[in-house]
Design a binder for these strands. Structure first.
Lengths: 193, 193
DNA sequence: AACGTAGCGGAGGGGTGCCTCCGTTTGCAA
DNA sequence: TTGCAAACGGAGGCACCCCTCCGCTACGTT
């Protein structure tokens, strides 16, 4: 699979020596934090600082800004896509909703990142494929079971949910209420209520 | 009304001398452009440059970064809130949907701005009040007519719609499809379909 | 234990943005 | 027309960031 190749390729860039690997991982963790807080425009020196690592080390591991973006992004995608597997035994609609809730958590901080990468990045395309491979069957299953409206594409659903959740909700109850409205719209007309 | 006071106050900051007024307006127009393109982190010198004005002039009119944000924001809000009036004669549901479409256009580029201002700004709160004053009656009317679900607050609707639209849609048809799904969820259960 | 090398880190040059300050220009009232 | 206060604009000081380069460190091997 082309997508697996791409993701594996990024993964394979991890260094082998113990200290180097530690730094690499610390950098990705720090980048997740910093990008989450400051968006894609965040300072790389801040990332290095927070990782407890010299700026030189950052640039050796990630020569271009985009390389760091990609590595962070791939890390997230791997986790999300893996999480689709353990939903197979749930009822179709529940499985879809549960996965979308995880998707929401994933997309929350990664918005800015995605927008940065969306411009011609092979890796980004692979990640999309990966996510779609994980989530699309869940939607199809719900549609085949008559639980979800048949005219919605998976891409529609992704945009529906991820957009809503990108906003900060100070009140969790409201977040659920809004998501519920959206999901009601996604339900199959005959089935809803 | 407290909100009108606040908005009027910002409005009153406009300079009186003809050349100064021209520059002030050019700055706001340029800022709308630049913030739309680059987000809230955009360079103020770029704004001045694009307005064809010295950086000093920018800082005299808007001593703090936030002042410029507020002025741009207030400008948008005035337009949006005014636009609710000419929907009064449409059927309740149609009026709501039409206004939400305008809201979408408004919110598209102002996302970053809003996030910047949301942290303790009196003016921002006034703008919220202003928008809610314009939009909330439309929702209430639709709910009273039995066209919209009664458990949704106006705040819910704002978040539902604005979140979705914050993403760029390359295909307008998809944007409409996604919005339609969300609005279906907003419809009253008994009325939908 | 000793060594070769992969990896480290931060100094530093270049660039950009923020904001202030002040000599110059210009609108407008008399 | 003239005068002056209001407004202009950009030079410049400061801060931060990007990225490169190279002398030093310490990992893992023998």
């Amino acid at each position: 699979m082309a997508s697996a190749d791409q993701l594996g390729e990024v993964f394979a860039r991890r260094p082998k020596r113990a200290d180097a690997r530690r730094n690499y991982d610390a950098l990705i963790a720090a980048a997740q934090e910093v990008f989450g807080e400051c968006g894609a425009g965040a300072s790389l020196e801040e990332v290095a600082r927070r990782a407890g690592v010299g700026i030189g080390t950052l640039y050796r591991n990630f020569p271009k800004r985009r390389d760091l973006f990609e590595a962070v992004y791939v890390e997230e995608v791997r986790a999300l896509s893996a999480s689709a597997a353990d939903l197979a035994d749930r009822p179709p609609w529940d499985a879809l909703v549960a996965w979308l809730h995880r998707f929401v958590a994933y997309v929350g901080t990664k918005r800015a990142l995605a927008e940065e990468l969306v411009h011609d990045s092979e890796v980004f395309r692979s990640c999309r494929t990966e996510i779609y491979a994980a989530g699309e069957p869940l939607l199809r299953r719900a549609q085949e079971a008559g639980a979800a409206r048949p005219d919605a594409t998976f891409d529609d659903v992704v945009r529906l949910v991820s957009g809503i959740m990108a906003y900060q909700f100070f009140e969790p109850a409201q977040r659920d209420r809004v998501l519920a409205i959206a999901l009601d719209g996604l339900r199959h007309p005959a089935t809803s209520r």
